[in-house]
Amino acid sequence: MAAAGAPLPNGPTPSRFARRGFLVGAGAAIGVAGLAGARWFNIAATVQERDLTAPEALAAAQAGEILLVDIRRPDEWARTGIGQGAVAIDMRRTDFIEVLLGHVGGRRDVPVALICARGVRSAKMSARLDAAGFTQVLDVPEGMSGSGAGPGWIKRGLPLVQPN
């Protein structure tokens, strides 16, 4: 094995710039991966004015004050269950808004709270429902699995049911 800066057998001497370039590139890749992980786990999430914690969402759903909608995928529902009192509607459905309107009797003024795994998808869907004319859209930013907004429905030990 050649010493640092020594000629390689049958080749040129690696320069300090080449080694630095590799280290800078590796550092950038690690930084990008860290940012992607931070976004996936939604560590910057906080509870805002139109948000509910998981326990607040459970209490409001059980009291009939909101319609709590779990917008995750069916495989996620099967893996963890859905929160007691929630209805499961996959957000990827092309008829999502029509199905939701069926649950609220066609009224866009009924309080609807959205929950997903970590609050990323529910925040996006909240904006979509706002644009569709829903006037009382709430978010549960800690989600089922937890985020920067809180530990999540599952870690809080809140009740779960299997979807129909």
Score class of each variant (00 low, 15 high):
I71M: 10
D90L: 06
A44T: 15
T80N: 14
E56V: 07
I82Q: 00
A60E: 05
G85I: 01
R50G: 09
A54N: 09
G85L: 06
L58P: 05
G81H: 01
A88G: 13
R72W: 07
I89W: 04
W77S: 03
D75N: 13
M91G: 04
E65R: 13
A57E: 02
A57S: 08
G83I: 00
F41E: 12
A60K: 09
Q84D: 14
A54R: 03
A78F: 07
G85E: 10
Q48K: 14
V47D: 04
E49P: 02
W77F: 10
R50Y: 07
A54E: 06
T80D: 15
A88V: 08
A59R: 11
A60P: 05
L52A: 06
A61L: 04
I66N: 01
L68V: 08
L68P: 00
D90W: 03
A78S: 14
I66A: 02
G85D: 10
T80K: 07
M91Q: 13
I66P: 04
A44M: 12
W40F: 15
A88W: 04
E56H: 10
A45F: 03
T46N: 11
A61Y: 07
A45P: 03
E65N: 14
R50I: 04
G64D: 08
D75G: 11
D70M: 05
A54W: 01
A57L: 03
R79E: 15
E65P: 05
G85T: 05
D51E: 12
W77P: 00
G64H: 06
W77E: 06
I89L: 14
A59V: 10
A57K: 04
T53E: 10
P55Q: 14
A78Y: 03
L58V: 01
T53R: 08
A88N: 08
A86C: 09
A63F: 03
L68Y: 00
N42A: 06
A45R: 01
A60I: 02
D70G: 06
L68E: 00
T53I: 14
A45W: 00
I71W: 01
G64K: 08
E56Q: 15
I89P: 01
D75S: 14
G83W: 02
D70W: 03
A61E: 03
T53F: 00
R79G: 03
A63M: 03
G81W: 02
P74S: 14
V87H: 03
R50V: 08
A60S: 13
V69K: 00
E49S: 15
R73I: 10
F41R: 13
D51C: 09
I89F: 02
P55R: 13
A54D: 08
N42T: 06
V69T: 02
E49N: 15
M91H: 13
G64C: 10
I66H: 01
D70Y: 04
D75P: 09
M91I: 09
T53G: 06
E56N: 07
A54K: 07
Q84M: 12
L68R: 02
